Computed example of a mutant assay.
Amino acid sequence: MTKEPATDQFAARFHEAGFAVLAFDHRRFGASGGTPRQIVRFDEQIADWRAAIECAATLPDVDPDRIALWGFSLAGGHVFRVAADHPRLACAIAQTPLVDGRAVAPHALRSMTPGAALRLFGRGVVDALGSLVGRPPLLVPTAGARGSVASLTTPDALDGDRALDPGRRHTGWEQTVAARIVLRLGGYRPGRHASRIRCPLLVVVCDQDRSALPAPAVRAAGAAPAAEVVHLTGRHYAPFLESHEQAVAAELSFLEKHLAPRVP
């Protein structure tokens, strides 16, 4: 997702509460540069987070010791890895995070029909091989119904449009991704960095999440020295839908606690 549909609802509420918000697109997506487009490279995206932190620390009226992270889904998984490498952070929020591709991949495969899974992995291989000789990325939809060839066909995958762009305002939101991601996602396990996170960490999970799954996130939170878990009712996109107010209340309370001005 690009920054507007992914963050608009929460960024507005955080700003109304008095916090400055820096939202950004990963390279190759949205308003950011980088070619070829629509390619997910985890190390590149982690580097983009580091650059965003460095940028935020230089902005007027920003205290470099009172910077927090907020990420959702795959970016919520990135929060674990980035927070582990930045002990100066004041706190971090991971909302329905994808923390363990190895745990999620079998469930995602079971949500596909065998034929669709074979076609998807075939496209992933073709895309990866094509990249070696400079061919344009072979794109697939980021979400689709069971039986379609898409990167995710879990029962709640198609909730994204209704949750993130119900008014169809974000006409430039390109909902595709290079197919090679299916060959890499199973090996991405940012939750393994949880034990190195020194700042307070809030992990928000949805108990009926069928995309990122709540159990791996709860386990990862248990390994972080200063983590707390908030359980919401609903599926992967519930924080943008029926559980939005509960999610906002929990996250604002957490931010107010850990970003409050320090009294000498």
Score class of each variant (00 low, 15 high):
125 V>N: 04
125 V>S: 03
125 V>K: 04
127 D>A: 08
128 A>I: 01
130 G>C: 02
130 G>A: 04
132 L>W: 05
133 V>L: 05
133 V>D: 06
135 R>A: 13
136 P>G: 08
137 P>S: 10
137 P>Q: 13
139 L>H: 11
140 V>E: 06
140 V>Q: 10
141 P>I: 07
142 T>R: 09
143 A>G: 09
146 R>Y: 00
147 G>M: 00
147 G>P: 03
148 S>C: 07
150 A>S: 08
152 L>C: 11
152 L>W: 04
154 T>N: 09
157 A>N: 07
157 A>E: 12
158 L>E: 14
159 D>M: 02
159 D>K: 03
161 D>G: 11
162 R>S: 06
162 R>A: 12
165 D>T: 05
165 D>A: 05
166 P>Y: 02
166 P>M: 04
169 R>I: 04
170 H>A: 15
173 W>S: 14
174 E>H: 09
175 Q>R: 15
176 T>C: 15
176 T>P: 11
177 V>P: 10
177 V>R: 12
178 A>H: 07
180 R>W: 02
182 V>G: 14
187 G>E: 11
187 G>R: 14
187 G>Q: 12
188 Y>Q: 13
189 R>P: 07
189 R>D: 08
190 P>K: 03
190 P>E: 03
192 R>A: 15
192 R>T: 10
193 H>C: 11
193 H>D: 15
195 S>N: 00
196 R>Q: 15
196 R>P: 10
196 R>S: 15
197 I>K: 08
198 R>G: 14
198 R>H: 04
200 P>H: 00
202 L>S: 01
205 V>Q: 02
206 C>Q: 01
206 C>M: 05
209 D>L: 02
212 A>S: 11
212 A>T: 11
213 L>D: 10
214 P>G: 03
215 A>T: 14
216 P>V: 08
216 P>T: 04
217 A>E: 06
217 A>D: 08
221 A>Y: 00
222 G>P: 11
224 A>V: 03
